[in-house]
Design a protein around this nucleic acid. Structure first.
Lengths: 117, 117, 117, 117
DNA sequence: TTTT
DNA sequence: TTTT
């Protein structure tokens, strides 16, 4: 209803994706994605900043991720920002922000595939 | 460099924005934005989910926010996902994900203004 | 396959939408959308430019458009850029660029609805 | 004002870009970009459609294009939809839709650069 | 042809 | 904590 929640990222996987098969044959994959940007400071020097994003993928996107994406792969990810709370080992409520993907485009020459959820 | 980090949201402010003037006359505004979505469950019943997002705005966008946005205002926000760590009162490292806005469009009839950073 | 084609617009309808029911009960709606932007010239004067976009909507989005959108309505449109050729009355091949919508969000207070194709 | 006009594309150049230096040392580059999509028909067969887009780039983006992009290069383009009219050789008014880029990301391994206008 |  |  009157809402838009969309994230688009292009970056590289920080490590091989994690993949699990849940009950009912539902697959979930997760990975960290680094997006790097160049910017100039006041003196005109170029610096880079990297932001890390937690990506979660379900079903066919999880299979694709598991099959084709590896540490270092470059990928376009489109999805929704979701906040999830969980209890840490000390019983405290913790909050995480994740991007639940609904489209990915693999940007490495080796593989080439787009998929929609 | 080879990176894209973009968030686009349309939603409503959960409360009046917080505004502060930092040293050097730099303004910062913050607010929580709710994005609500409808989806159908397996039985065809419509449900709503709301996601809350922490928005941070600097300089001219902070002034605009301070001047025009209020609890309930509908707004389009475009920005970047940034993760920030800070120490909580117990000295633990905590992580927050914020959206640093670089464009807003006010979507309420009352006011009408787009601004770029 | 390795392709992304996405347009996002916020603007106002230039006229009431056109709606037709094709064979097989498939609805199509069309409208022109104006997006207006402010920019400053070299002397700091503010100017406005308006761009007009041809929007095409199918099925449930066509019904929504027909039901709720009118001349002047403000709407968010997300879709794909498509080029279509047709023969004009003099038999020449002409080209049009249209945006085939796959999501709309009505931004007027009166009505309030998001719908996905 | 209250307007959003944004296009995001990932695709390949159909030919080497055209580059011109206008008066005042202002560079303009143009190229055609193909975005390809897979879709399934009613029988589950996969088909591909290609859409062609006219991209225009000014100043530093034109230089980058001229220097690094070639026929076949894969690129992310973000920009605005602009309609332009011109007179064809027979004196008729013709309309073209172009995407005026304000950001590109080169997606080929060989080169690697993001630039903002 | 819209809107502020 | 918002909105419809």
């Amino acid at each position: 209803m009157r809402g838009l929640n969309k994230v688009t990222l292009i970056g590289n996987l920080g490590a091989d994706p994690d993949y699990q098969q849940l009950e009912g044959n539902v697959g979930v994959a997760k990975f960290s994605l680094a997006t790097t940007e160049a910017y100039k400071d006041k003196n005109g020097h170029v610096h880079h900043t990297t932001d890390w994003h937690s990506i979660v993928l379900w079903r066919s996107l999880a299979e694709l991720t598991h099959k084709y994406l590896r540490k270092g792969s470059m990928v376009y990810v489109e999805g929704k920002l979701k906040n999830r709370q969980f209890e840490d080992k000390e019983g405290r409520t913790r909050y995480v922000t994740e991007i639940v993907a609904d489209q990915i485009i693999m940007l490495d020459k080796k593989v080439g595939n787009t998929e929609d959820e």
